[in-house]
Design a protein around this nucleic acid. Structure first.
Lengths: 106, 106
DNA sequence: TTGAAGGTATGGTTCAATCCTTACCTTCTG
DNA sequence: CAGAAGGTAAGGATTGAACCATACCTTCAA
């Protein structure tokens, strides 16, 4: 498997790219689940159970990665997705909270 | 001029629609200017000086209105755009601050 | 009442996002 | 080694976003 590329540095993150990535409900669901998980949770792409093909999965996770929302690291057999929580929070405070709060009961 | 329709109630606002509306740099610029202005500022569409045609202006302001970001009220000759600041802040706290902080000097 | 200003509607183009199928690669497991 | 699992790449269809030009409507001002 080729190395996952296209991880922007925090100062390279573009608000427009983040908002565009989060405008899609399936990608927002991925981020929301990661935010609500305990810190340092790693998840594989398939584990989110999105109702799309494998190829579309790759596409969505690429958008999330290139926007800077997640980091993808090789884990031998597969590839793990980590939320870049602190970096995002430092540069765009409150953004992740907005996503996490969506459709949450009071 | 037909009445401006499609103003969602606060509880009808969809985070996805807001993020999609704000993913466009020109619409984000409009909202950022309104946020940075004093409260209760009314602006006409043209006053923002966006480099697009009148038809595209109508489109962009319709997207902002239907997402719930602005309220458009008839002012006889023209139509004023108001930021729905409090309603947005109540439902999605921090969202407007993110937009306003973009590209701002320290 | 004529014109200019501000907006809208329509029709059409272009470009990107989303999605799928198929094919292929790598790594772990049996 | 063979197969399954996880992921990527390439090709193609579909859809929607963004844009423009043109035409039309309403309101104010000369």
């Amino acid at each position: 498997m080729p190395d996952a590329e296209g991880h922007p540095e925090p100062e390279e993150m573009q608000l427009g790219a983040l908002l565009a990535a989060l405008a899609d409900p399936q990608r927002r669901r991925v981020i929301a689940e990661l935010v609500r998980s305990a810190p340092l949770t790693e998840r594989t792409c398939v584990s989110f159970g999105l109702p799309v093909s494998k190829a579309s999965l790759t596409h969505h996770f690429r958008v999330l990665r290139e926007a800077g929302l997640i980091r993808q690291v090789d884990r031998g057999n597969s590839r793990a997705a980590q939320l870049r929580r602190d970096e995002i929070e430092a540069r765009f405070p409150g953004l992740l909270a907005l996503v996490a709060a969506e459709d949450q009961p009071l």
